[in-house]
Amino acid sequence: MTVHSTIATPIEQAQRPSVWSRIWQNDAPGYLFLLPWFIGFFGLTIGPMITSFYLSFTNFDLLQAPQWVGASNYVRMFTADPKFSASMRVTLFFVIFSVPLKLAFALAVAMLLNRGIKGLPMYRALFYLPSLLGASVAIAILWRQIFAGDGLVNKLLALFGIIGPSWISNPNYSLWTLIILSIWQFGSPMIIFLAGLRQIPQDMYEAASLDGASKWRQFVKITLPLLTPVVFFNAIIQTIEAFKSFTPAFIISGGTGNPINSTLFYTLYLYQEAFGFFRMGYASALAWVLLALVGLFTAFSFLTSKYWVHYDD
């Protein structure tokens, strides 16, 4: 992430730089631009984060003062909590399948929509519609209409003589219906891909086609490399979001994570512990374990990014 400032400013060349003027020249602008963020970070964000870290070492039932219990929340998590491992499995499965599929889908549609075809704004808007619905109660009802025993999917399958199960409430398939929901709401990464595609200078393609490069070659040689910062962003963000995914399972399973905890996402379990069973201390410990896991993943991604993400700087 280093940015090289190789060119000395005229002022630096003219004067003998004192320490303070160098700081003013080099560091001050950055910190000034970050000022709003710093105010927010130190004023609103870091305090509650540190508090939750402290709470993770306590028993805190929300209603009485927290009691210090050392690392026992963490110990319990890794030694005596089958729901922790179950929810971790569910979440990992969800991340592994939903993120790549959603990204591939979003990129494919964005490419398709980036062509100069008629009615483009209309299609874009239609494809974004599912994402507009957000966490609406209507989605839960709709998903039942589609994936229940007598739902749309099984009516289609019946045409081929197949009798399907109730996908949404069968523990073997219920998680898949949530993965499909997540892919269906692919609007946000699609828009980000589109914005990225729009930033690729068109003359590069023109030059390439003059050289006789095929469409596929253009995609591999121009589009993908120039899009890597956006691909990188989408991959990181979607993965973090998928690890933290809460709303789909919450609305569709009514907050239960059932059938048989097959949709008990990690944060849904955390929420149940915190607000359902009054164990905010334990929930905080769960949250910090998740943060460590996602943080490791993100750090690893940043370390490897220099081998494949192409920046202009």
Partner: peptide, 11 residues
Amino acid sequence: LMTLMLPYQVT
């Protein structure tokens, strides 16, 4: 980036 990773339920 870290502020993105902590579930809001605990803060």
